[in-house]
């Protein structure tokens, strides 16, 4: 192609309004082999739990193991709830810590950050796009567990009308909707942690350091949450209402704790994004 032809390819018409960078970011996150493996590992959890319950003859008392595990053999739809309860404390924070910690630090280490910024993409936009992609990834991760849980539960166990924790019985379709709502709540519960991870990620050019820091913070938060003497602190820990989704399996749904959980996440997102923004928009990009 001649130079003249190339020059004629000058941009025209109006600037594009399509969220091209966000789509590109999603493609980057979901196209990455490591992240795909993480999703597969999450999907294996309901499979593992389902198979273990179906081959075992041991009686499980209510209160033993992850929530709802005693109900799965009676109604397979409960497998989705059990699997979500099983991944929320550790596996899911680990997965989000890896993806969030990598968000900015990974691009800084690869050097792609400087080329993104000289396109130019404003630093605020980089943060917002990265964060939006993290939220989508969190939602997909939670939905993966819920949907695989529902599928495996239906395949291995009897299903049908579901008796909720409150004693009410609802049709199976309603239980499926509730499982998806639980997945959505779990995804939103991770909003704070994702924002913390993104903020940490702006402080280093070593992605592994950002990932480890984020995971350590997630674990520390839960340890503090388990110490009764620190009761005053508990309402402020981002992991405090992570397991409140059990309320969605009651009828009527008690919304108080769930609402506190969402508010708590909003607070952590606001603070973490402010930290990320003030750091990222002023830092010298020398990587």
């Amino acid at each position: 192609m001649s130079l003249a032809e190339q020059v004629r390819l000058e941009p025209l018409r109006r600037p594009s309004r399509a969220p091209r960078l966000l789509l590109s970011e999603l493609w980057l996150v979901f196209g990455r082999r490591r992240n795909q493996v993480l999703l597969v590992v999450l999907a294996l959890v309901p499979v593992l739990v389902g198979v273990a319950i179906s081959v075992s003859t041991a009686e499980v008392e209510p209160g033993q193991g992850p929530p709802f595990i005693d109900r799965v053999s009676g109604n397979g739809l409960f497998l989705a709830f059990t699997a979500l309860a099983a991944v929320v404390p550790f596996l899911l924070p680990l997965v989000m810590g890896v993806v969030a910690g990598d968000a900015v630090a990974g691009e800084a280490q690869a050097g792609t950050l400087r080329y993104l910024l000289t396109v130019p993409v404003s630093r605020t936009r980089v943060l917002l796009v990265k964060y939006a992609a993290l939220m989508v990834f969190g939602l997909v991760a939670a939905l993966t567990v819920a949907l695989v849980g529902l599928a495996v539960g239906v395949a291995l166990f009897p299903s049908g009308e579901v008796t909720l924790l409150s004693g009410t019985t609802v049709p199976a379709a309603s239980a499926v909707v509730r499982a998806l709502l639980v997945a959505a709540y779990v995804a939103v519960s991770l909003a704070g942690l994702s924002a913390v991870g993104l903020a940490v990620s702006t402080f280093t050019e070593v992605p592994v350091a950002a990932m480890a820091t984020t995971v350590v913070l997630a674990i520390t938060s839960q340890i503090l949450d388990a110490i009764p003497q620190l009761g005053w602190l508990h309402p402020f820990l981002f992991s405090h209402h992570w397991l409140a989704f059990g309320d969605l399996v009651r009828d009527p749904v008690p919304t108080g704790t769930l609402a506190s959980g969402l508010l708590l996440q909003a607070g952590w997102v606001a603070i973490s994004m402010a930290v990320a923004w003030s750091r990222f928009t002023t830092k010298d990009v020398t990587s």
């Binding site: 390819l9 941009p11 025209l12 018409r13 600037p15 594009s16 399509a18 091209r20 960078l21 789509l23 590109s24 980057l28 196209g31 990455r32 082999r33 690869a110 050097g111 792609t112 400087r114 080329y115 993104l116 000289t118 396109v119 993409v121």
Partner: peptide, 30 residues
């Protein structure tokens, strides 16, 4: 700037697509 830097696991073309997607002032149809 200081040598090329791209995503190692993406193709050359995919890397350029990412840069182009980041540019708000170009026509994506071209």
């Amino acid at each position: 700037v200081e040598g090329p830097a791209f995503h190692p696991y993406l193709s050359g073309r995919a890397n350029l697509m990412r840069l182009d997607a980041a540019d708000r002032t170009v026509d994506r149809h071209t």
